[in-house]
Amino acid sequence: MSAIKDYTGAKLGMWLFLFTEVLLFGGLFLLYAAYLHKFPAEFHLAGKELNVVLGGTNTVVLISSSWFMALAISALQQGRVDHCKKLMLLTLAMAMTFLVIKYFEWSAKIHHGIFPDSPELLARPAGEVVYFGLYYLMTGLHGLHVILGGGLITFAYVLIVRGKVTPQDFVFLENAGLYWHLVDLVWIYLFPLFYLIA
């Protein structure tokens, strides 16, 4: 069975998959909305414990990674393959930076005894327990998607090196880019909801 080359179809399929991710995270955003409504004061209080500098830096990091990714696709479309590869490596570097900063944020919190079901956390008001529960779940699920996206971009890089993704046939890279931008999109909402709620 020969593979049917359908550029628009491949892109459509990727967008449909992105919709599933929107609804997946959407469920968590629904919980956030409900609990923000229930515990406005505790959310404001708990929000102060997150580091706006680190969160803001991560926001800049992800936005820049999206920028690099968009440039990479632009480069490949213009036939600038080496440029594209460099930009993809920059994207991956940004992804790693994000994860490193996240690691430091999480380990600091865990070190202070703030993690799901910890005695330290359970001693606090209920609204703060919920806030941090959502914090770990939402940034955790997001972090997992950063790793998955990074893997996808790495795979695309390998395909370019092997000549399977080219300036004439680049839909795989475009789709990897779409996935990566979704990861950025989720963070664009997570940042204000967790770091700027104070």
Binding site: W15, I63, E174, L178, D184, I188, Y189, P192
Partner: peptide
């Protein structure tokens, strides 16, 4: 906060994700 976030998201979706230049079907869905 959400309004500003949505403007940012809109820019990412329309330009980085190329939606502005896609067929109407994509915008609708």
């Amino acid at each position: 906060a959400l309004t500003i976030a949505t403007v940012k998201a809109g820019l990412v979706i329309l330009f980085f994700m190329h939606l502005k230049y896609e067929k109407p079907l994509f915008k609708i869905i």
